[in-house]
């Protein structure tokens, strides 16, 4: 029920496997908050009415004698402990330790820059080619990919267009070229800062394709987006990436097309 209320308020529909558990925790915490707030407010309003000066001209030196508040505090501690130990810590462990094996997953690199998301697929060989900051060229080679490296021959790069197959785990190695950005897809309940000098892996499993989501939300314009969540300069507000979740077949077809384009154009400027 709480989850329905949160969705009504604005919580976007969930579209990843672990996201369901995130939402359960979200609902749980909000229940705790609501119960405490309503309880306190009921008491508060009653007291303001009951103990106003005109009704109660003589204050009582002792005040409250019951131990009810102690029980409330103990209950709060117990509820917090359950949320913490039952949900939050195990879930975090799952997010940062229980990575799927690379062979079972779609593995990509994403390198953020002011104000775009560079997306790097390893290509059919499954190995990322060498990159070097010295090779970076803003228009022709934003990732600094060394095309002379044999592993880089079949690599596919792209700006702001992230395609992923549905129901297959995705591992993203996230980094940044310049300042700190933050990679988030609200429907996937995923977020991670992209920090220069560090490569941080994240993983999730998309469970609803873009087309299915269009039907579910009854909106043809539905669009998954990468939202930058960390202030990264004057273009922070428009640093949106576009995410397409599709069937494995559609994804493979798309990837082949991208590979062919990269071969024919000779550099990585095909997307311009």
């Amino acid at each position: 029920m709480m989850l329905e209320w949160l969705h009504k308020l604005g919580l976007p529909p969930v579209a990843s496997v672990h996201g369901v558990a995130v939402d359960v925790a979200q609902a749980g915490v909000h229940w705790l908050m609501l119960v405490l707030f309503v309880g306190w407010m009921g008491y508060f309003i009653f007291v303001l009415f009951r103990f106003r000066r005109s009704r109660n001209p003589q204050a009582n030196y002792q005040g409250v004698k019951s131990h009810f508040s102690t029980y409330v505090e103990v209950a709060v501690v117990v509820a917090e402990a359950v949320l913490l130990l039952g949900f939050s810590i195990p879930m975090w462990r799952q997010r940062v330790e229980a990575f799927p094996s690379a062979s079972q997953a779609t593995v990509i690199r994403i390198v953020a820059e002011q104000f775009a998301w560079n997306i790097h697929y390893p290509g059919p060989d499954g190995i990322f080619g060498r990159t070097d900051p010295k090779l970076i060229d803003l228009t022709s080679n934003p990732l600094g990919l060394d095309r002379n490296d044999p592993n880089a021959m079949d690599d596919i790069t792209n700006v702001n267009q992230l395609h992923l197959p549905v129901n297959k785990p995705v591992i993203i190695h996230l980094s940044s070229k310049d300042v700190i950005h933050s990679f988030g897809i609200p429907q996937m309940r995923i977020k991670q800062d992209a920090i220069p000098g560090m490569s941080v892996p994240i993983w999730f499993t998309p469970s609803v394709t873009s087309e299915e989501m269009k039907k579910k939300t009854n909106d043809d314009k539905f669009q998954y987006q990468i939202a930058c969540a960390q202030l990264c300069g004057l273009g922070h507000y428009r640093m949106a990436g576009y995410v397409t979740i599709e069937s494995q077949e559609a994804f493979d077809t798309w990837l082949d097309e991208q590979g062919a384009k990269a071969q024919t154009s000779g550099d990585d400027a095909f997307w311009l």
Partner: peptide
């Protein structure tokens, strides 16, 4: 008096931000 419920709301809404699971969605 108004401080009490207002600070209460501030404190309570800190809970989903303090738990990383829920913060995944709400951070920043």
């Amino acid at each position: 008096l108004a401080f009490l419920p207002m600070f209460g709301i501030g404190g309570l809404t800190g809970l989903p931000l303090g738990l990383t699971t829920t913060d995944l969605h709400l951070h920043d």
